[in-house]
């Protein structure tokens, strides 16, 4: 939840060689404590993932032996009479891209405009952006049913989910963008540009936006990662995205190896997105 945005931040004002004031013996004891803790937690976090990976490499779940059949099945698996698994993967990836783009289109110009011209509304907008954190998706979806009835009369494509995914992504995108925007001296830049005769459009897209590219990339990655793992809303609005498809395969064919390979693959993809983020998200050295 609230936590993900702190991913890219580096620790502030933590002094190097922290246990400097401690005597050697206590320092050694602390080191033992640290390695015990790291080992136990490392095992707790790694074992489920390793089990998932192992299971995805079994010929048929639970039989022993090694095989990459389950990974090959990702492209070929389909239940008779329904679209194939890979088509769900594709539509989920499309949703991730569309949602990321839509969040940026909605938020970037609005936030810059607020910063430059309508500061008095910034608290309200911040509140609205963070509001989805306090409204459980399962509660939001109850109220979305009538709205989606209307949408589904026009299009039944699962891509229509992006309308509400934008809302889910707002808090994360907002915080990423606001960190980026605060690091730019937007007012001075815009005054300088306006003084030289630039239009507001130029100020926004040719002056401010290029200065917050990293924040924009962060917001994009966070929004996309969120979409890849979303289940609740799609499930209750009767759309089938990747997670819903995996869920229904697991309910119809328990222990089908393909659900382990696909979910591990999806997870790996999300990890990679977020690890990219933790590297590009780190502030450049010596800036301002």
């Amino acid at each position: 939840m609230a936590a993900i945005t702190s991913l890219g931040e580096t620790p502030l004002d933590a002094e190097p060689q922290r246990p400097r004031g401690l005597q050697g013996r206590r320092k050694r004891r602390l080191n033992v404590f640290r390695y015990v803790v790291f080992t136990i937690f490392g095992a707790f976090f790694l074992l489920p993932l390793l089990a998932l990976l192992r299971m995805s490499l079994e010929p048929a779940a639970g039989n022993g032996g090694w095989s990459i059949a389950a990974w090959k099945q990702i492209v070929s698996y389909s239940v008779v009479g329904t679209p194939s698994l890979i088509s769900r993967v594709v539509i989920t990836l499309e949703l991730a891209v569309i949602t990321g783009a839509a969040v940026l289109v909605l938020l970037v110009p609005t936030m810059i405009w607020i910063k430059l011209r309508v500061q008095w509304i910034s608290r309200t907008v911040e509140f609205l952006c963070l509001l989805p954190l306090t409204i459980p998706a399962i509660a939001l979806v109850v109220g979305l049913v009538p709205i989606y009835n209307w949408i589904q009369q026009r299009s039944v494509s699962a891509l229509m989910l992006f309308w509400v995914y934008v809302i889910l992504a707002l808090p994360y995108a907002y915080r990423a963008l606001s960190a980026g925007l605060n690091a730019v001296d937007a007012k001075t830049l815009s005054e300088a540009a306006r003084g030289l005769g630039a239009s507001w459009f130029t100020v926004m897209f040719r002056i401010i936006v290029p200065n917050m590219r990293q924040a924009i990339l962060n917001a994009l990655l966070l929004s996309s990662a969120l979409v890849l793992g979303e289940f609740t809303i799609a499930y209750l609005l009767l759309f089938v995205n990747l997670q819903v498809e995996l869920y229904s395969i697991s309910r119809n064919t328990p222990n089908a190896s393909v659900i382990f390979s696909t979910s591990f693959g999806a997870l790996l993809f999300t990890f990679i997105l977020l690890i990219i983020l933790s590297y590009v998200g780190r502030p450049r050295r010596g800036r301002m």
Partner: peptide, 21 residues
């Protein structure tokens, strides 16, 4: 970095991971 990723990691996949563990 891992905490940032794992705090987000929930849902269907997590249930599968513990199912096989």
């Amino acid at each position: 970095a891992a905490s940032g990723v794992l705090a987000q990691f929930g849902g269907v996949t997590l249930a599968f991971a513990f199912l096989v563990l």
